[in-house]
Nucleic acid binder design. Structure first.
Length: 482
RNA sequence: CGGGGUGUGGCGCAGCCUGGUAGCGCACCUGCUUUGGGAGCAGGGAGUCGGAGGUUCAAAUCCUCUCACCCCGACCA
């Protein structure tokens, strides 16, 4: 063992998380502090995320484009809230070509400013609206404390930036993309999320309103998995993004921005994986199944490899399949290795199976074995994938629902958060200082204010604020966040 | 950035207190036997002990500085 041991979750959740990443070869630390190398195993997952999300982004009318990495420092300063939010975490380039630059260039922490500077050139008429653009890019934020995938100095993401004629149109877009994220998280990632609005103190610097999807990890902590911002005219005014309406009047555009990042890979790990390693929802697994032929003699090797190849060919167009024909390793080793890498299904073919024209099918998450005719694998595997996808979601949902408590007493709330058991649904009067006080005393923050229209599991009722007793229109979602 | 911890062949660790020139398990290479849940035996290769400086006849070991990672806090997707 040695190199491939994974610390059990019950012993040390953080170490377990790092062990899974190392054993599954998802990422490694780079020589630069806080930066990560995404290894092929991790990048393949990111590519699957990109494929599925990109499809949804395009289906909702957006086009991809690419804006530059470098942003003039003065651009950031044009929006007061925005620069205030990002100033401490900027990487700034002061030299180019061996010379001091006249104006320093910021390495983008996000691209609102450079994109809207361009939008002001491109938008003239209401006929140019809405303008719906997305970009896949890297961004840099000089974080104090980093964790692989969850928070790294440089990370990959997509950022959508749209311009609209009216506030209502922009708001509609903001919620449309939030729904895209919810749908993606729940149906592709098998990750149940709370969909709601951020409080003012948690919103994006420069946004009017921020919405998020929030997921629960296996340690009961919250992970913000995606955000969507209604930016109002906060950027269109300083960047002069204007259009002439049908009455001939100049109007400022209403903007939105929304994004998800490589953090989603961290969410996948912490939501589904187990003490044997990575568990991936089949819909996002780069490799759908691995075939392990089992042999003792050369004749058996030829027989089982031939059978494995036949099965693989029968699965063409169904899912991605790999035959593990490595000679040096014994089957047991291969089983463990592919399990730790999160391949959803394993197909074993030994001499006994070949004799009976059968195969053994094993599901990654529950390790259940099925014996079936070789010719039936083609029919069965997609069903097994679908069942596993469904079960992973249900398991995560059940875990989340049993780790949420409705709490009306602050003393109980404090104890509950101290125990680190999960989320609380509690009333809040809306006062920013109350929020700060609770954070200070319990480390818990308001993850979001769940929105009715997304059918979140939230008791719809008015009540009294957990801390002040003042009236509260509905419960908000509290948790300790990553 | 503050508090705590850890850095020794690819990985996990012992050795450090009480200085004497590096060891164990797994992995790797060769051979034979093995192969349906991480194989066995035999032989072999691989480490300037995170880095720099200092003390000393002699430093993995003592001292100073520095870097990286982990945990806790402040900041954040």
């Amino acid at each position: 063992m040695g190199t491939d041991t994974i610390t059990p979750r019950s012993k040390d959740f953080s170490q377990w998380y790092l062990d899974v990443i190392r054993v599954a070869e998802l990422a490694d630390h780079s020589p630069v502090r806080g930066c990560m190398v995404i290894r092929p195993g991790g990048y393949a997952i990111w590519e699957r995320i990109q494929q599925e999300l990109d499809r949804r982004i395009k289906e909702t009318g957006h086009q991809n484009a690419y804006f530059p990495l470098f942003i003039p420092e003065s651009f950031l300063k044009k929006e007061a809230q925005h620069v205030e939010g990002f100033a401490p975490e900027l990487a700034v380039v002061t030299h180019g070509g061996g010379k001091l630059l006249e104006e320093p260039l910021v390495v983008r922490p996000t691209s609102e400013t450079i994109i809207y500077a361009m939008y002001s050139k491109w938008i003239n008429s209401y006929r140019d609206l809405p303008l719906l653009i997305n970009q896949w890019a890297n961004v840099v934020r000089w974080e104090l404390r980093t964790r692989l995938f969850l928070r790294t100095t440089e990370f990959l993401w997509q950022e959508g930036h749209t311009a609209h004629a009216t506030e209502a149109n922009a708001e509609e877009e903001t919620l449309r993309m939030l729904e895209v994220y919810r749908d993606f998280a729940e149906n592709e990632m098998a990750l149940p999320v709370f969909t709601g609005r951020k409080t003012d103190s948690e919103k994006f610097a420069g946004a009017l309103r921020t919405f998020s999807i929030e997921a629960m990890m296996q340690d009961g902590k919250a992970l913000q998995a995606g955000t969507s911002h209604s930016l109002g005219q906060n950027f269109s005014v300083p960047f002069n993004v204007r259009y002439q309406d049908d009455a001939g009047q100049m109007q400022y555009c209403w903007m939105t921005s929304w994004g998800v990042s490589t953090r989603l890979i961290g969410a996948l790990i912490m939501a589904h994986s187990d003490d044997n390693g990575l568990v991936l929802p089949p819909r996002l697994a780069p490799l759908g199944a691995v075939i392990v032929p089992i042999w003792a003699s050369d004749e058996e090797k030829a027989l089982t490899l031939e059978a494995a190849d036949r099965i693989k060919r029968s699965l063409a167009g169904i899912t991605t399949v790999k035959i593990d024909d490595r000679d040096q390793m014994r089957p047991g080793w291969k089983f463990s290795e592919w399990e730790s890498r999160g391949v959803p299904a394993r197909i074993e073919v030994g001499p006994k199976d070949v004799a009976k024209e059968q195969a053994v099918l094993v599901r990654r998450d529950n390790r259940k074995k099925e014996f079936l005719p070789m010719s039936a694998v083609r029919e069965r595997l997609p069903l097994l994938h679908a069942e596993m996808q469904h079960d992973l979601f249900e398991k995560a949902r059940e875990f989340r629902d049993t780790h949420i408590r409705v709490i009306d007493d602050y003393a109980e709330f404090k104890e509950y958060m101290k125990a680190g058991e999960g989320f609380a649904l509690s009333h809040w009067c809306g006062d920013r200082e109350v929020e700060a006080k609770v954070k200070d005393e319990t480390k818990a923050t308001i993850r979001n204010i769940p929105l009715d229209k997304f059918s979140n599991p939230r008791p719809e009722e008015a009540g009294a604020c957990l801390v002040t007793g003042r009236p509260s229109p509905f419960r908000v979602l509290w948790g300790i966040a990553y």
